[in-house]
Each structure stands twice: as C-alpha cells, then as structure tokens.
C-alpha cells in the first residue's frame, strides 16, 4: 500500500486563528470520520464479536427469540474438525482456487503484454471488451454458463461431441464441476487482472526492456525474465485478492444446478465453504455451528493468503538471480545512455 502521504498539512491550527476556528478544526476531523466508525462499531465490531459468542453455543434460529442457545464451549469447533463434509467443501474450494487463479494470472499476464504496445490500434475496444465481464453480476454469469455447460444441449457439450469427444456431465463430476465453476471465475476476472497488470507494466521504465532487447532477448524472454519478475508485487496483490475471492465462492455453486444440487451436488462435489455455511445457517438453521464455520473460513482464508505471501517471499530469495540479471541490464542501459550522450 504505497499511500500518498501529505506531510504538509494545510490545516495546522495556528495562533493567528480565532478561538472558534481552532476549536472547530480540532473537533471537525473526529466528526468527519465518525460515520464510518459508528457504522463499523455496530455492523463490524459487534457482529464479529458476536459470531465468536454464537459459535460457542448450540444455537438454533428459533433460540434467538428465546434469548440465546445453550453454551457448549468449543464443541462446535471440535465437531468441525471431524466434519468430513466441511473438509470436502474446503478441498473443493481449494481445487477451484487453483483451477481459477493460476490460468487466470498467466493469461492476464500474456494479454497485458500484448496490450502494452503503443502501436496497438483500438486499445480502448480491447480494454473495455476485456473489462465488461467484470461488471456482470455473478448471478447472471452463473445462469449463462450453467446453460453453456448443460448436459445434453449445452453448447460446450455439443461442441465436444462435434469434435468427436465424449460429452461431460459437468454437474455430477467433481473435477468437471470444479472446471465449470473455475471457468466462470476466470471469465469474470481475467480482464480485470489484465488491466491491473497493464497499468503496472506501463510504469516499468522502458530503458529496462530496451536494455534487454539490446541484449538480444526475444519478446517471450523479455516478458518472462524482466516484465513478470518486476510485476511481482502486483501479481502478489492480484493473487491474494483472487484467493480471498475464491474463498467467498457462493453464487456459482448455489446456482450451478438449479432445481437440484442446492447442497452442492449429491456427493457435495461442488460444495464450497461459504455455501456450506449458508446451508448450515439458513437451511438447517444451526446458527452456532454455522458461526464456527464462519471463523474457520476466515482462518483458512488468512492461512491461504499468508501462504501466497510466503511463497512469493521464497521466490524472491531464490530468484535473486533474476534480480541480478535485471540489475545487469540496467547497467548496460545506463552505459548506453552515457554512450548516447
């Protein structure tokens, strides 16, 4: 978070001001930030704390009116650790995460590289075309893709059949349903990430790329050896966002098989953690247990995000080599500038 910091506040109370102005300037900022903090107190701090409290209870939805559930200590968490269905939902979530994040990032890096070309004609058309899936609602996306992935008349199966492959029962197969859901995520987010990467690429000093070119590196090599490593902070940021987003997958599995499979399929093959939480809370009405799931969801999200950070840190250390290469090229570029001057 490279915050732009103003170190010269223009509003320092000064002795020349009247008493009122000084007093006003001292109180006003608190007043101005208070709406956020008040709202956060009620809908943030309270709800988070209360989730913890509820998770320690056997608390059915109907207990709420009666004043609360029965205190059971950590029983809900113990149950969670042994709940095969929860862990299935966690592995599903993780599998979809891998199938969406990795292709999405690679594809976005390629597209951004292609868009990062000042000679490109009609850049606006490409950029807006790539961004439009991102503004589409997840509900609409799922409805369309669910029809594209239909068993008998879905366009994808028809196409598979046309080229002589077997049709896939996308909803009943575990890997198939993960692929379908990951496809929806990829469709929605690849363009967005492309623009993020494009912005980052545009801020790479052109002398670096130039130096590599001079050094005889082809376009692919320049992309992979220079651009991508330099984009690492941005890729990290996008990946963490993607991880967090994947742990919140809900509408896709809920709507993937309308009429059937609202529990994520008869084998829970596409049950995600958040859908499980929702089912527990607002179908089974077990608020206590669902609250424990909520905490576990946050914990797993944090662990996954930290793993991404740690993974990138590891890469950074291991690939100092690549940084050295960049440094060497920078030197060459400098040398060239000197030579040119």
């Amino acid at each position: 978070m490279a915050a732009v910091q103003s170190d010269d506040p223009g509003l320092t109370p000064r002795s020349t001001m009247s008493w009122w102005f000084r007093r006003e300037a001292r109180i006003a900022p608190y007043l101005y930030i208070s709406p956020f903090f008040l709202l956060f107190l009620v809908f943030g701090v309270f709800t988070v704390a209360f989730t913890a409290w509820v998770s320690l209870h056997d608390w059915h939805i109907f207990d709420t009116a009666a004043g609360g559930g029965t205190f059971v200590g950590l029983d809900n968490y113990a149950r969670l650790l042994n709940d095969a269905r929860f862990w299935r939902s966690a592995t599903n979530t993780f599998s979809i995460l891998l199938m969406s994040t990795i292709p999405q990032m690679l594809l976005a890096l390629v597209l951004a590289e292609l868009l990062n070309d000042r000679r490109l004609r009609g850049p606006h058309i490409f950029r807006s075309g790539l961004l439009i899936p991102n503004i589409t609602s997840v509900v609409a996306i799922t409805i369309v893709f669910q029809s594209l992935f239909g068993r008998h008349y879905g366009l994808i199966n028809v196409a598979l059949d046309f080229i002589g492959l077997d049709m896939v029962n996308w909803t009943s197969s575990r890997i198939g349903s993960h692929f379908a859901i990951a496809t929806m995520v990829n469709w929605q987010w690849t363009g967005y990430n492309t623009l993020i990467f494009l912005a980052a690429m545009q801020s790479i000093p052109s002398d670096l790329i130039e130096a590599a070119r001079v050094d005889g590196a082809g376009r692919i090599k320049r992309w992979w050896k220079i651009t991508v490593p330099l984009l690492r902070p941005t890729i990290l940021f996008a990946t963490v966002l993607s991880v967090i987003g994947n742990f919140q997958l809900f509408a896709q599995p809920l709507l993937f098989a309308p009429g059937v499979g609202s529990m994520g399929g008869n084998d829970q093959q596409f049950l995600t953690i958040l859908l499980y939480l929702y089912n527990m809370a607002f179908r089974q009405f077990q608020f206590g247990y669902a609250s424990a799931i909520a905490w576990m969801l946050v914990l797993l999200t944090a662990v996954a995000a930290l793993m991404v950070y740690a993974g990138v840190g590891y890469l950074n250390r291991r690939e100092n080599r690549s940084a050295l290469e960049v440094e060497r090229m920078r030197e060459r570029a400098n040398a060239r500038q000197e030579a040119g001057a």
């Binding site: 239909g150 068993r151 008998h152 098989a257 309308p258 009429g259 059937v260």
Partner: peptide, 10 residues
C-alpha cells in the same frame, strides 16, 4: 435425469 432438472422436464 435428476428430478426437477431441465432434462427431467424435457
């Protein structure tokens, strides 16, 4: 054909 699915109705 799963009950209550589109294929079922078809």
């Amino acid at each position: 054909v799963p009950a209550w699915s589109a294929e079922w109705e078809a």
